[in-house]
Amino acid sequence: MTDEIQSSADGRAAPGYSYGYLDAQTKRMVRRAVLKAVAIPGYQVAFASREMPLPYGWGTGALHITASLIGPDDVLKVIDQGADDTTNAVSIRRFFARTAGVRTTEATADATVIQTRHRVPERPLGPDQVLVYQVPIPEPLRWIEPREPECRRMHALEDYGALYVRLYEDIAHIGRIATSYNYPVMVNGRYVMSPSPIPKFDNPKLDRMPALQLFGAGRERRLYAVPPYTTVKSLDFEDHPFEVQHWETPCGLCGATDSFLDEVIVDDAGGRLYVCSDTDHCARRRAIRDGSATRAPWRDDTDGPEVA
């Protein structure tokens, strides 16, 4: 991990800007905040995020973290909604290819740093990988208490009763907890944390994950972390244990029965197809099955505009 201005190992970084866009001082500031976050799992560390050349709300917090961690030896994967080819994922991947000259990949297994929005890859991550989440609203108490000083007080006192009451009210009114994504978790038995808007299907993957998990919220100027092998428990009740979505239909392309599926409307008559949201996972399964990877039929192999 290097800070030399305008000089990546292979010299491909964008001229006129620091390696990885952020200046060395800012990276140091972010790294300090990351270290503090790792030291206090689940605690939201305030940091002075900078304006990035991408809009707030589009992943600037994770960009800060990725820019501060990445070095010429890293291999970067960027996913949005589980897919490598969504426009924002492409845009962010290009940003780092341009400013840091890093190699990029779509293969989960090959990546050293994975920046993600709204999903955790299906393939289990290893201890040599870092997962960087884009976080829009870092505060899990925000919808209960809009005031920041009050939220901080509640965290300090472990005053999470209101959150449980809210979950209980769902059960009392409609028989189940009505939170299907951004489902709050307890980290290391101490801090309640927003896992970012991942579907609750992904929550169990956070628990004792061998990879370092970092969460960045640029606009809200917070970052937080789950160190490797840390306990992450989704909030629930003894008589209402946490449970995840599952589908009765397997993936229409690879036949997976254990992955998160996107519903695709395929015709005007309401015909539907369920396919893996994790495009790398799906492609790899099909490659193993067929002996060669194929793309989803509606996806343009040339990576162009997909308007049928």
Binding site: E51, P55, Y56, G57, W58, T60, D80, Q81, G82, T86, N88, R117, H118, R119, P136, R176, A178, S180, Y181, N182, P197, I198, P199, K200, F201, R219, Q245, F260, L261, D262, E263, S277
Partner: peptide
Amino acid sequence: VEASGFVQHLKLPHYVDFQAELDLLRR
């Protein structure tokens, strides 16, 4: 700059979360 970014981030795909909500609504 902050408000513009966050208001307009709604243009980004949200179909994973929407799918989760869709499931819940069907139930």
